[in-house]
Amino acid sequence: MRRLSFAALRLREPGEVHCELARELFAAFGIDQVHLVLLGADRKGGRGTQYLPGPGDEAIEGERYAYPFDSGSAVQRVIETGRPHNEADAAASFVTKPELVKRFHAASALFVPVAFEEEVRAVTILVSETPRVFADDEVQLAYTLANQAAAALAGLEMRSRLALRVERQTALARAAGALNARLDPRAVLDTLCREADLALGGEIAGVYLGDAETGGLAVAAHGIAPDSSWYGYRIKPGEGVAGRVLQTGRPVVTNAYRDEVRTPASDALRDVETAVSVPVRWNGELKGALSVAFSSMREVRAEDIETLQAIA
Rank of each mutant, 00 (worst) to 15 (best):
R2F: 11
R2H: 12
E13I: 02
C19A: 15
A22G: 02
R23E: 13
A28L: 08
F29W: 10
I31S: 09
V34G: 01
V37C: 05
V37Y: 06
L38I: 05
L39H: 03
D42T: 12
G46E: 03
G48L: 05
T49D: 00
Y65I: 08
Y67I: 06
G72Y: 08
G72Q: 10
A74T: 08
Q76V: 03
I79F: 06
I79V: 15
I79K: 03
T81G: 08
R83A: 15
H85T: 03
N86C: 14
A88C: 07
S93Q: 10
S93N: 04
V95S: 15
T96W: 06
K97T: 08
L100F: 08
V101S: 02
F104M: 09
F104E: 01
H105R: 15
A107I: 01
S108C: 02
A109C: 13
L110A: 01
F111G: 00
F111Q: 00
V112K: 06
F116D: 01
E118T: 11
R121H: 15
R121I: 01
A122G: 14
F134W: 15
D137G: 00
V139E: 13
L141K: 13
A142V: 04
Y143M: 11
T144D: 11
A146R: 05
A146D: 03
N147T: 10
A149G: 06
A154S: 15
G155A: 11
L156A: 01
E157W: 09
M158E: 13
R159W: 02
S160M: 09
R161L: 13
R161M: 13
A163C: 00
A163T: 12
E167P: 02
E167N: 13
R168I: 01
T170L: 14
A173T: 12
A173E: 11
R182V: 09
R182L: 09
P185G: 04
R186H: 10
D190M: 04
T191Y: 00
L192I: 11
C193K: 08
D197V: 07
L198E: 14
L198H: 14
L198W: 05
L198Y: 12
L200I: 09
G202D: 12
I204N: 12
A205Q: 04
Y208H: 15
L209A: 05
G210I: 07
G210T: 02
D211E: 03
A212F: 06
T214S: 15
G215R: 05
L217Y: 12
L217P: 00
A220N: 07
G223L: 11
I224Y: 11
I224K: 11
S228I: 02
S229N: 07
W230E: 09
W230I: 04
Y231Q: 04
Y231S: 06
Y233M: 05
G238E: 12
V241S: 10
A242L: 07
R244T: 00
Q247R: 14
R250C: 00
R250M: 07
V253L: 10
N255W: 06
N255I: 00
Y257P: 00
R258M: 10
V261I: 11
R262C: 03
P264N: 07
P264R: 10
A265D: 14
V272D: 03
V272L: 06
A275D: 05
V276H: 03
S277L: 01
V278L: 06
V280A: 06
N283F: 10
N283C: 02
G284M: 07
E285H: 06
K287R: 15
K287A: 11
G288A: 07
A293W: 00
V300P: 00
A302Y: 04
A302Q: 13
T307D: 05
A312L: 01
